[in-house]
Amino acid sequence: MSRVLVTGGASGLGLALVERFVAEGHQVLSTDVAAGLTPPAGASYRQLNVRSAEDWDAAVEWVEQTWGGLDILVNNAGIATGGRIDVETLAEWDRVVDINLMGVVRGCRAFTPLFKRQRSGQIVNTASAAGLVHPPMMSSYNSVKAAVVALSETLSHELHPYGVSVSVVCPSFFKTNLGDSIQGADTAMSDSARRLIEKSPRTADDIAAAVVAGVKKKQFLIIPDRPALLAWRTKRFARPLYDRQMRKIAARARQRAEATSADQVPSAGER
């Protein structure tokens, strides 16, 4: 039985992971930014804002005092974002970097001393297929998720001498409430991302089952669904095809943007 801490555990993939770990008999601490939430039966709950170093320090103190240590840290909390490079604001970039990247960095920094003392532990970082393949109109999201993949690979080598393993999770779109976190200047991109999330045939439970299976095997790269795996393999082994697909997406986006601009130009009779 492992002792597991999951961030972003109140909804979406985080909640599905909490439920899956509990069902398999593990001790689970679900954390999220809100206070006073009720976790699934069998789990504990603490408020933890991944942007707060103080909250992370308090979480370390809690697991040491309550459990005597931790076996698996799941850095899962995150938001969805995206937009064209000339439309998305720098404030939006700051927000997604602080949550999706620095939130993971803070978690890794907070728990690494404990894992080193234990000479054991596993860090599981939720990235995205966007960390491996990089569609247009998603500069900020692609960038932070690629950084999480790079951070995870770095730590997998750095912490190996201490008996600590690292996994990084890279799913494609699946049904979740992640679309609710999308906010920004590029509303066309936001609407498109929400549709992809809502229309996906995959659920958070589907992804969680594959993730927990990969965690058990201590796989470094966990790609839990077929579309993400195919996209990654296409980029690796058929790069010209991958480039053509991405440029088609960009071309369609340009056509939609120009059509929208044309619709917004008043006719002569309206001027």
Rank of each mutant, 00 (worst) to 15 (best):
Y45C: 08
A77E: 00
G78I: 02
D71I: 05
A34L: 15
N49L: 07
G69M: 06
Q65W: 12
G69D: 01
V50Y: 02
P39R: 11
T66K: 13
A35L: 13
A58V: 02
A80T: 07
D55R: 05
Q47F: 06
E54T: 13
A58T: 12
W67Q: 09
D57Q: 15
W62T: 09
N49G: 05
E61G: 08
N49M: 00
N76F: 00
G42I: 03
A34T: 11
S44Q: 14
A59V: 09
Q47I: 06
T66H: 12
D32K: 00
R46Y: 08
D71P: 06
I79L: 09
R51D: 07
L37R: 05
A35R: 09
G36F: 08
D55Y: 05
R51A: 07
L37G: 00
A35N: 14
A41S: 15
G69E: 09
G68E: 07
A77G: 09
V74C: 05
L37V: 01
W67G: 04
N49S: 09
E61T: 14
G69C: 06
Q65L: 13
E61Q: 11
D32G: 11
V33W: 05
A35V: 12
V60G: 05
V50S: 04
L70G: 02
V60R: 05
V63E: 06
I72R: 01
A58F: 03
W67M: 13
G42F: 04
A35T: 07
D55V: 09
A80Q: 12
S44W: 10
L73C: 01
Q47S: 14
T66Y: 10
Q65C: 12
A59W: 06
S52T: 04
W62R: 12
D32C: 04
N76P: 06
S44H: 15
Y45S: 02
S52K: 03
W67K: 08
P39D: 08
E64V: 13
A77Q: 09
A53M: 10
N75E: 10
R51L: 11
A43T: 01
P40T: 07
A41T: 13
N49D: 15
Y45L: 06
